[in-house]
Amino acid sequence: MNIFRFAGDMTHLISILVLLLKIYATKSCAGISLKTQELYALVFVTRYLDLFTDFISVYNSVMKVVFILTSSAIVWCMRRHRIVKRSYDQALDTFRHLFLVLGCLVLALIVHDKFTFQEVFWAFSIYLEAVAILPQLVLLQRSGNVDNLTGQYVFFLGAYRAFYILNWIYRYLTEQHFRLWISCISGLVQTALYADFFYYYYISWKNNSKLQLPS
């Protein structure tokens, strides 16, 4: 464990909590893609299949449970909460994310560390996390609504990406057997897609602030 990875885990968790609290506080999920949140929940469930078989540390196990619970809570809120679900942009959130799931599954069956059930699903979750933001990117381009995608959420999501890239650089420089290629390359793709999301977020945020009536 290094400080970059710990900071990355913390900012990742904070970004999820910020989004969950925003949805719960405003009882609204307008502008948020349920499909992206479903993909994130699927990422954690398929990545942490080893929760009950491999014990690495208390921190590792506790964080796995927390990530699964918080990402599932967001999906539950958007699908089941009687007030929140009314504000879901169902007509705009139409990205066919099933193709992302199938594509990542095929890729994981081809490129993985070891051909075991757990390893294939681990690689699947790594690839899926990289592309999971696409439905949210498309919804943002269509709706331009950033009310619930607070600046803090976008900031912590970006910080998570930045810290993890620093973590991989640190591990590459300090460890003999660097074998995080799947995580590293997929993480770079994820960061590039995040940068694209950030660009559209900034454009939408600027347009919205221009639209504000002069107080």
Binding site: R5, I56, M63, F67, D113, T116, W122, L180, S183
Partner: peptide, 10 residues
């Protein structure tokens, strides 16, 4: 070795 397949990153 064993650690090759345990993923210690979240």
């Amino acid at each position: 070795t064993g650690d090759a397949c345990t993923h210690d990153e979240l």
